[in-house]
Design a protein around this nucleic acid. Sequence first.
DNA 1: ATTATATAGGATTATAAGGTCTTGTAATAT
DNA 2: ATATTACAAGACCTTATAATCCTATATAAT
Lengths: 144, 144
Amino acid sequence: MLYSKSAEYAIQAMIYLSENKSEKPIMISKIAASYDIPYQFLAKIVQTLVKQRLVKATRGRNGGINLGRPSHEIYVNEIVHAIDGPPPEREQCVIGLDLCSDETPCPLHDKWKPIRYKIAEMLAGEHLDDLAERVTAKREKMKK
Amino acid sequence: MLYSKSAEYAIQAMIYLSENKSEKPIMISKIAASYDIPYQFLAKIVQTLVKQRLVKATRGRNGGINLGRPSHEIYVNEIVHAIDGPPPEREQCVIGLDLCSDETPCPLHDKWKPIRYKIAEMLAGEHLDDLAERVTAKREKMKK
DNA sequence: ATTATATAGGATTATAAGGTCTTGTAATAT
DNA sequence: ATATTACAAGACCTTATAATCCTATATAAT
Ligand code: FES
Ligand code: FES
């Protein structure tokens, strides 16, 4: 819908890292088990995150991964772009009628444009610290 | 993003029918050429639209398709559902954390819920008559 | 009746996303 | 040193969507 399954898994993994802050690296297998993500698949996704410097990897025994930066400096859209690639330079029209522009709007353009903006705003406005906090709150509630 | 490529083609084809109202059937190949849609692929999509009664087909020489109902009675979401299937009964969480509900919201829930509503509203609130009119306007502008 | 033409529909192929398997390589505990 | 552990990485498999091929069938013009 908004991002690929891979990006969704990446977000979940990053939230996990943000929730379980520790100097010691956290194993990918642990995260995979916790969120019920196929281990090998997550490992592959993490490789990309490492290349993009969003996480740091420590190899070998007692190895694992850590956040590449403080959690309050990592925003959701960064994660999405790291996995799915950067957003298109020119916006595409929702119903595929040539390019999207205010000058030549398609029938849905006026309704779609503010929605698209809201989505971008949502992804750009949330950093991992916020997310982790609220995920923890969700878990608490679900226990009851 | 919001719907499959097939559904997008279906919307385009329906708009075409709405723009070119005529008692005589309109050929699928004409529509396909006009919107640059692979002919055979569109023909297949149209088969589904016919089964769902959104368009009526006339076979044989001078055959083609027509809208199944007056254009002001056909809404975009009907077309999407006809092609992509009905929407899920229970809303899925944007970041895949169990089911979505106000009681156990995920970190993005509060920002995502109104957006999701806006999208549904957009698709349910536009009928073909509106769309066709505005597409024609778009074409006019692009000529200049 | 015959022929041309347009949709109907099953079978098949292409591409991409999602997911698995196997081997390599780095780090560390013993 | 060596065995073990955990990420790295490429090859491979699976599934869903997108697209194509080919033949059947309906209809109207001749
Ligand atoms: S022109 Fe279609 S969404 Fe902007
Ligand atoms: S709980 Fe995540 S979107 Fe509602």
